[in-house]
Design a protein around this nucleic acid. Sequence first.
DNA 1: ATAGGCTCTGTTTTT
DNA 2: CAGAGCCTAT
Length: 644
Amino acid sequence: MDLDRALNAEQRAAVLAPDGPALVIAAAGTGKTRTLTWRVAHLVDRGVPPRRILLLTFTNRAAREMLDRARVLVGESVGGIWGGTFHHLANRILRRHAQRIGYGNGYTILDQDDARKLVRGCTRDLGLADKHFPKPEILLSALGLARSRESSPVDVLEARLLGTDAEPADALRVLDAYAARKRALDAMDFDDLLAGALRLLREHPDVGDRYREQFLHVLVDEYQDTNAVQAALVDELAARHRNLFVVGDDFQSIYAWRGADFRQFLTFPKRYADTREFKLETNYRSVPGVLSLANACIAANPEQFQKTLRPVRGDGARPILAELRDGEQQARYVIEQIATLRGEGVPLREMAVLYRAHFHALELQMLLGRERLPFTITSGVRFYEQAHVKDVLALLRLVQNPGDELSFTRLLCLLPRVGERTALRIWKALGGRFAPLHPAAWTELIERLPAAAKGDGAAMAGVFPEAETKHLAREPGLIVERFLAGFYRAYALVAFDTGRERVEDLQGMSGYLAGFRSLADFLNEVALQTNLDDRQRAEDAGEGLTLSTVHQAKGLEWRAVFVLWLNDSLFPSGRALSEGGDEAEAEERRLFYVAVTRARDWLFLCCPRARIGRDGSYVPHTPSRFLRETPPALVRRARVGYGP
DNA sequence: ATAGGCTCTGTTTTT
DNA sequence: CAGAGCCTAT
């Protein structure tokens, strides 16, 4: 390991930090990931056993990348390091000790969709379902926000429901019912995982001590985006050895809406009085013009660690502010500029288009398709959330946990003349259990189906013949294959207009499934959103232009970056500003800062002057306040689409 | 009573 | 382009 050659003085100081709490304030593009990777490698190199190192990251992908790079530096032993997201860690711990907090070890993890369904059910059961009652998403996001702050949902609900005629008390009753339902189903939502792990560590000293003892070193990436529960979890785990190394950038805190609180980052030195602070300010990524713009835009936000991006790179292009007539013009402009850049030898994969919300990219997607320019999109609907994938997952989940009511209902609703009510009635009649691998269970099920569903029901049952029960139990990939061949292929072709692609997806999934040790491992990974996009993004990295939300672009970089729809109410999002309270504007500005600092060589800020409404009307739009704040000298203006 | 098709509306960000 | 709401067929 040659630290002197690979790292600059700032980075080296952080990597070599002595034991004890350390805070690394790493501005954008200053080698944060590199520093963290080398720190991990350094610890291993110094003789710290890998299994006694914990590396917490914001996505599973980030952990994978860092560990892969560390492996190159110090070898295979890094495989023993505990690395991943907070949810990943919580799940790993809880799978071993769930009984201690009243769950079974085979508990189900509810995704957002499941949670929504349960809450909707609870609302109905309490007779509160009507138009004016808050939707499940509202209730769940209030609950999530409250729980991430370790507070009660009452206050959040009162604030959220102010001005509506819904009673916070009723909303609370629904949320209580939701909690009870989860208990009954032995299911946890994402927040339960974190809260459960924290409770386990705090209230069960024997278990807690085991982990507190285990982790000699705890490293946390993107610390500015942790919430109170996550920070508490970190504090617990690092309590014994106090070797806590956190890295972040308060300028890039963009998850307040999910309960993240960058003050956790700001006050870290207060909570750990002997903290050593390190600052990384030397930016290797971007040309000076991009950095000047970034520095200028973030200056409008008060209350942060002072830091300035210092460029090492020499001259380069000034960012371009492109004023366009409308969205269509914007899409065309982007494609033109891409063509020019390609002409200069910049490959498509070195370019990205970033935006505030997925639907902002619709026009561009269509035009890119027409022009046959390859692109990959970090899509709004993730792989495991698509209907066809969830259908098949329901079957697998039911195999894993025969008490999984949600999965049973989903599976049965694939049959004609069976909806939620019928499915539930049958579920009750079957005693709240159904094991798909047992043919006898199917016989009983088919008897209870409405006449119109018996045929398809028999087709489903035929997937699981007596002779194969053992075989199938060992090979989940085979279950998917059989299910496709015997039932789902036919269903998908009729139910979806893109049936063929969806069947192909599922065939891919059955192959992917074969690579897992067990069905349980697979389902865990699925539930925790290690989504296929991530893998594909890594695999397809040779191809196409990237389209992404700014949120999903965090931590990434490209030679050329286009930012779309820089208009007030779009970016910054009008909805975020009105719902997010007084700190929303600062958060949106940080989001803009993140977008800007993704660019290495070229930055294009796009500002259409209007949107074409559904009815074809021309709706004028004001330029974003973030553009109005920008000193004019920092950008080069281009007016496009006004001339003859 | 329930399923399922048809129409209308209105789009944030995600582990 | 999906999700909710409305309406009709079973």
